[in-house]
Simulated assay, not measured.
Amino acid sequence: MSMRKLIPAAAVLFCANGAWAEGPGLGQALSAEEIPWYASYAMPDGRGLPEGGGTAAVGAGIYDGKCAACHGATGVEGPVTPPVGPNDIWAKPAGRYWPYATTLFDYIRRAMPIDAPKSLTNDEAYALAAFILYRNGVIGEAEAMNAQTLPAVVMPNRDNFTDVWAKQGATPW
Score class of each variant (00 low, 15 high):
residue 2 S to N: 14
residue 2 S to Q: 07
residue 2 S to K: 10
residue 3 M to I: 14
residue 3 M to C: 05
residue 4 R to I: 04
residue 7 I to N: 02
residue 11 A to W: 04
residue 11 A to G: 11
residue 12 V to P: 00
residue 13 L to N: 11
residue 14 F to C: 08
residue 17 N to L: 06
residue 17 N to P: 06
residue 22 E to M: 09
residue 23 G to E: 01
residue 27 G to F: 04
residue 29 A to I: 06
residue 33 E to L: 10
residue 34 E to I: 04
residue 36 P to G: 02
residue 36 P to H: 03
residue 36 P to L: 01
residue 40 S to R: 15
residue 41 Y to D: 10
residue 42 A to M: 06
residue 47 R to L: 05
residue 49 L to T: 04
residue 51 E to I: 04
residue 52 G to P: 09
residue 52 G to S: 11
residue 53 G to N: 08
residue 54 G to N: 10
residue 54 G to T: 07
residue 55 T to L: 04
residue 57 A to M: 08
residue 58 V to N: 05
residue 60 A to F: 01
residue 62 I to C: 07
residue 64 D to W: 08
residue 67 C to M: 10
residue 68 A to G: 06
residue 68 A to I: 05
residue 69 A to M: 11
residue 69 A to N: 07
residue 72 G to A: 08
residue 73 A to Y: 09
residue 76 V to Q: 08
residue 77 E to M: 05
residue 79 P to C: 02
residue 80 V to F: 09
residue 81 T to R: 13
residue 82 P to A: 15
residue 87 N to T: 05
residue 91 A to C: 01
residue 96 R to M: 08
residue 99 P to G: 03
residue 101 A to S: 06
residue 102 T to S: 15
residue 102 T to W: 06
residue 103 T to P: 13
residue 104 L to V: 07
residue 106 D to A: 13
residue 107 Y to S: 13
residue 107 Y to C: 05
residue 108 I to C: 12
residue 109 R to L: 15
residue 110 R to L: 13
residue 112 M to V: 03
residue 115 D to L: 09
residue 116 A to Y: 06
residue 121 T to I: 07
residue 123 D to V: 10
residue 126 Y to Q: 10
residue 127 A to W: 09
residue 129 A to T: 15
residue 130 A to N: 11
residue 130 A to W: 01
residue 133 L to E: 02
residue 133 L to Y: 02
residue 135 R to Q: 15
residue 136 N to E: 02
residue 137 G to K: 11
residue 146 N to W: 09
residue 146 N to K: 12
residue 147 A to N: 13
residue 155 M to V: 01
residue 158 R to G: 00
residue 158 R to V: 01
residue 160 N to E: 04
residue 160 N to P: 00
residue 161 F to R: 03
residue 161 F to P: 02
residue 161 F to G: 03
residue 167 K to E: 14
residue 168 Q to G: 14
residue 173 W to S: 08
residue 173 W to K: 02
